[in-house]
Design a protein around this nucleic acid. Structure first.
Lengths: 234, 234
DNA sequence: GCAAATTAATGATTTATTCAAG
DNA sequence: CTTGAATAAATCATTAATTTGC
């Protein structure tokens, strides 16, 4: 069942994906893709863009030009109780996801989706469109935001928990404290990306080693970054 | 010890260590235990198991006791009608986490902890010990299982969702959507990091080396994550 | 109501894979 | 290619829920 090529396969996969990204965006200046999501362009012809087609490793960029009204076809200004307000007309304000849509999006998120590629966004958009107005960028932004906010929540939870542990029974070895603060970056995976040596053998023995190790490792490291962790990326 | 197949090799090695467990000296600490926890191989007679009678448990004899005793602290052999049977004696109980403990563990998990290193496990164990009997291995296993099972749940959810999407409105023109189902997003983005090295058990000898190797600095060097396009540190 | 019987959860083990040194 | 190290997946086994017959 196992194929010999597993390595090859993954290698190719990576290589392919890796190489493909640069190829597109910068060099091909042409009108083509500005944005990963094919569908997007259609929606917003004027947007600046960034990103490449699919290779997301790098995080993507905001598809659209913020700072101006995007969806509304036009605005009406009127005054209400001394306040001037803009009332969108012709169609839209910002996307207001329906319960159904959110349900599906969350399910996808739980299922592991984080940065869907254009094809995925297209599909999702298509599907969610049945439950209400929606555009690809909405899906894109939703994932961006949701991911970021989940990360925040988790960070908070982690800090709380850890601080509780610390204060309640652990020595004040600041080790991870600092870590928790700056390198938090980890989305949710906290394990360090390098190999960590573990020693805990049977409850006795080298506490020393462990202690020493703790100094550096205890951190809750981050994850979330492109393959090839070990400094090779650089 | 050249074997043709790596799997076989490891298998044999493992089998060997498992079956021929030296009942006497745990101190030998073979470096390559199948399991980290030097002390507990299946029925390790000398395991430092804690025999705590305080855990309320049913004393009802399991339906088929013979042959599957694993956790028993020790066995009593006796002969019954020509058959030698082993009767588990002592606390056979498997760890039964208290609500408190689970709460903390889950908080940690939500906080992003997935594969705590020895130092972390030690701390966690220490802390949770205040809420009930617990050993390092329990913590280790808990994370292993929880992680795996969460992954399962997520995968199921994802498949369901995706299949729903597929069947409901999308043609099979999945460009690269198939990826959605691969590891790409599985755990939570956690998969990106490679292996971490662990050194269990023995804890003798090069603890220092391990620590050093572990390289705090390296950890530090890792980027927190895609805040910036990697590679271009500038 | 209550236990035996059955089932769902989940702790603990075992087996397979993966990655990368040698 | 072989192999050590580490993990993830699969499986086993036990405990707690729940059901069921009395």
């Amino acid at each position: 069942m196992k194929v010999h090529h597993s390595h090859v396969a993954s290698y190719l996969e990576k290589a392919a994906s890796a190489s493909s990204s640069p190829a597109t965006a910068p060099s091909t200046s042409p009108p083509s893709e500005l944005f990963p999501f094919g569908a997007f362009q259609c929606l917003r012809p004027l947007a600046p863009k960034i990103s490449l087609p699919d290779q997301p490793k790098k995080l993507v960029a905001p598809p659209d030009v913020l700072g101006r009204v995007r969806n509304a076809t036009k605005l009406l200004c009127c005054t209400v109780r001394n306040h001037t307000v803009q009332v969108p007309v012709g169609g839209t304000t910002r996307w207001n996801p329906s319960a159904e849509q959110i349900k599906v999006l969350e399910a996808l998120y739980r299922g592991g989706m984080r940065t869907p590629n254009s094809a995925q966004i297209e599909r999702i958009t298509e599907e969610l469109g049945r439950h209400g107005r929606i555009e690809g960028k909405n899906v894109f932004y939703w994932f961006q935001n949701h991911k970021a906010r989940e990360r925040q929540k988790q960070k908070r939870a982690a800090l709380l928990t850890l601080s509780t542990l610390d204060s309640s029974s652990l020595p004040a070895t600041a080790t991870k404290d600092g870590a928790g603060d700056k390198k938090e970056a980890c989305d949710d995976a906290v394990t360090s990306c390098k190999r960590q040596c573990r020693t805990w053998g049977d409850g006795h023995g080298d506490a020393a080693a462990e202690v020493a190790a703790e100094g550096c490792t205890e951190n809750v490291t981050l994850e979330l970054f492109p393959l090839r962790p070990q400094g090779k990326a650089a």
